[in-house]
């Protein structure tokens, strides 16, 4: 199968994602420059973390107008798998491919640390190798990561099982101390209604090797491979 990693000006986790797919998963992967207008031959697109356009104005606000985003929307509408990580998630929000918005972390500072997230839905192409309630140790690294959506949207997300990951403590409990950025309802990752677009603030690509402190993030990439390869068969 083939992954595509979209590179915006200011993306900086592009190579880290590329490395995980090519060197750790052994799958095919290409970079896609943001000025491209077409995405063909890909099974899954990754919008990586970083500071697209310097995060100026609002995170993701300028990147959503990159030529590639029209193609990404089309790809998603056709059922293609899309993962937005950190800044990628913010771009998906600004593009309306996912609902909600990001606010500054509750402590107003950048936070880089390992956190725990709980798998809330394992019936997706991104989590099919996880158990419901499984706790994954994955790092975050952001300053605008406090997920916000109004009551109505949160209700819809719950109703459709679109909340995929929640911040939690080591045992899987939801406690304010383990909600690092003050996200609404502990939300760390959500999908669209169809379940083929995932956005999450934590960085699974940084938790894909034991030498870096955790391999839990790999489950997300491997789930995608399993979903795509299963579909082909």
């Amino acid at each position: 199968m083939r992954f595509g990693v979209v590179v915006f000006p200011g993306s900086n986790c592009d190579y880290d994602c590329y490395y995980v797919v090519r060197d750790l998963l052994g799958e095919e992967v290409d970079f896609i420059w943001h000025k491209e207008r077409r995405v063909e031959g890909f099974d899954c697109l990754i919008l990586p973390g970083g500071f697209s356009y310097g995060d100026y104005l609002r995170t993701g606000a300028i990147a959503r107008f990159s030529p590639i985003m029209r193609a990404v929307s089309g790809f998603a509408a056709r059922g293609g798998l899309v993962i937005g990580i950190c800044n990628g998630f913010q771009i998906l929000l600004e593009s309306n491919l996912l609902p909600g918005a990001m606010m500054k972390n509750k402590n107003l500072r950048f936070i880089c640390r390992f956190v725990n997230i709980r798998v809330e839905n394992n019936l997706t192409s991104f989590t099919n190798l996880c158990q419901i309630g499984q706790v994954l140790k994955v790092p975050i690294a952001h300053i605008d990561g406090s997920y916000y959506a109004d009551h109505e949207i949160i209700g819809t997300l719950k109703e459709n099982n679109q909340i995929i990951f929640r911040y939690c403590n080591e045992e899987g409990g939801l406690a304010q101390e383990s909600n690092p950025n003050g996200s609404k309802d502990f939300i760390a990752g959500i999908s669209n209604r169809q379940g083929n677009v995932l956005g999450l603030m934590p960085h699974p690509e940084r938790a894909s090797e034991s030498i870096l402190g955790s391999e839990d993030g790999r489950l997300i990439f491997e789930s995608v491979v399993r979903a795509v390869k299963g579909r082909v068969k």
């Binding site: 356009y53 310097g54 100026y56 104005l57 300028i62 107008f65």
Partner: peptide, 13 residues
């Protein structure tokens, strides 16, 4: 920097 980046984005639109 923010202003000039936004300006360029507007121009590209």
């Amino acid at each position: 920097p923010q202003g000039s980046t936004i300006k360029e984005a507007l121009e590209s639109l």
